[in-house]
Each structure stands twice: as C-alpha cells, then as structure tokens.
Amino acid sequence: MSCHEIQMYLTAYVDDALEIDKRNRVEQHLRQCYDCQALVKELQQTTALVFEQLNRTVAPINFEDSVMQQIAGVYQERQVRRFSIFYLACALIGIGGFAAVLLSPVGTFIRVLFHLFLAVLNGLSFVPASLGHWWMVCILLSTIVLVGSSIFGVSRVLRSLQSEVVL
C-alpha cells in the first residue's frame, strides 16, 4: 500500500479502531516508512491534546439549578395535564354510565324504586302529624343535626392530621 492509502487509516490506527488485518498492514508499512511514522507521532500528540483540553470543559456553576427549575415547570405542567385527563375521563365515564343505566331496562327499575322511595318518605312525613306526636319530629331533626355535625367534626380532625403529616 502507498503512503496515501495508509495515511487514510492512521487516525483510526491511533484511536485503536482498525480491524486486525488493516492494522497489520499499517504496522507493516510503518516499519519501513519514516514519514508515516512521523505523521503517526503528530497525530498521537494532536489526539492527546484534543482529548485533554476538551475534557477539561465543565458546565457553568448554576447550570444544574437552572435545568432543575425548568424541569420543575415541566413536571407541574405534566401533572396538571394528567389530572385534567383523569378528571375528564372520570366525568365522561360517569355521565356515560349514568345515561346508559337510565336508558336500559335497569333504568326503568331504578325510576320505579325512586318513585317508591319518594312515596315512602311522603307517607312517613304524615305519621307524626296524624298521631299528634310532634316531639318525634323534634327528636328526629335533632338526631340528624347531631350526626351531621359529628361527621363534619371528624372530617376536620382528619384533614388537620393529614396537613401535619405533609408538613
């Protein structure tokens, strides 16, 4: 092989990236060619200098913080998008399911049950009046208020405990 042909492979030779047969041919040529030997030496020096100098390049001091600030923005965007899609999907499933139930034979049964429930409530409302026992109504209302306030109180306590854990 001529010097010109060999020189095309010298960078790969210096980088140790030649196949074994080509490497052998290059080494065979180098043993008898001082010009190519000199070129290999220069390429080795250039390579060492390039590697040494470029590897010294480091990112600016605040680079990491700047990236992570932007990542936080991207993360929030992503979360908002995920929740929006989730809520939208839930709403669609809910509306769709409700409509499907109402339109199906089961819906007719539910409507009948609902009317029955209303009729029972209506009937029950006449019981205390017809018996003349207004005190029953008072006790019932008090019980409802008491149960309602208990549920509200418990939920407040649970919420405050949750926020303490988060903090």
Partner: peptide, 18 residues
C-alpha cells in the same frame, strides 16, 4: 423520580455542555 433525574443532570452536565 425527579431526584433521580437531578442526579443524572449532575452526572451528565459536563458531557452535554462539552
């Protein structure tokens, strides 16, 4: 995991910047 990605940025910032 954002913490893991922070560590990746720390490990690869010079590589990318260079």
């Amino acid at each position: 995991s954002t913490e893991a990605f922070t560590a990746i940025v720390r490990n690869y910032k010079n590589f990318v910047y260079r």
